[in-house]
Simulated assay, not measured.
Amino acid sequence: MKNVFNIKAAMLLTMCGLVSCTLVHKDQQSAAPDTAEAPVDGGLEKYEAYTQQFSSPTVITQNHATGHVGDFFFTHWKDGGSTSLSLDTDGEFSVDWEGGGYNYVGGPGWHFGDEDRVIGYRFDEDSGASYITLYGWGYDETMPTSDPAHLVEYYILQRWTYDPSQDGVYGKTFTSNGVEYSTYRSVREQKPSINGPSTFYQYWSKPTEERPLGEDHEIIFADHLKAWADTGWIIPDMNNFNASDDPTYQVMAVEVFNPANDGTASGQVWDATPQ
Rank of each mutant, 00 (worst) to 15 (best):
W160T: 03
T161H: 00
Y162R: 06
Y162P: 00
D163T: 13
D163M: 11
D163H: 11
S165D: 09
S165C: 07
S165Y: 07
S165L: 08
Q166P: 04
Q166K: 10
D167V: 14
Y170Q: 08
Y170A: 09
G171L: 08
K172I: 01
K172C: 05
K172F: 01
T173M: 08
T173I: 09
T175R: 08
T175Y: 04
T175L: 07
T175Q: 09
S176Q: 02
S176C: 09
N177W: 01
N177E: 13
G178N: 14
V179K: 07
V179D: 05
E180F: 04
Y181R: 02
S182N: 11
T183M: 12
Y184N: 05
Y184P: 06
R185M: 14
R185V: 14
R188W: 04
R188M: 10
R188Q: 12
K191W: 05
K191D: 05
P192T: 03
S193P: 03
S193Q: 04
S193A: 07
S193E: 02
G196P: 01
P197W: 08
P197H: 00
T199H: 06
T199I: 04
F200W: 06
F200S: 02
Q202D: 10
Q202K: 14
Y203N: 00
W204G: 06
W204M: 09
P207L: 07
E209Q: 15
E210N: 15
R211Q: 13
P212D: 10
L213Q: 02
E215Q: 15
D216W: 02
H217P: 11
E218N: 10
I220G: 00
I220M: 03
I220C: 06
I220V: 13
F221Y: 13
F221A: 10
F221G: 02
A222T: 03
A222Y: 04
H224P: 11
L225V: 15
L225C: 13
K226M: 08
A227C: 11
W228Q: 03
A229F: 02
D230F: 06
D230T: 03
T231L: 06
W233K: 11
I234K: 11
I235G: 03
P236A: 12
P236W: 14
D237I: 08
D237H: 07
F241I: 06
F241Y: 15
N242Q: 15
A243Y: 01
A243C: 12
D245R: 13
T248V: 13
T248G: 11
Y249H: 04
Y249E: 03
Y249P: 00
V251I: 15
M252K: 01
M252D: 01
M252Y: 01
M252C: 14
A253L: 05
A253C: 14
V254S: 02
V254F: 05
E255F: 08
N258R: 14
P259K: 04
P259Q: 07
A260R: 07
D262T: 14
G263S: 10
G263V: 09
T264N: 10
T264S: 04
A265I: 12
S266E: 00
G267P: 07
G267C: 08
W270C: 06
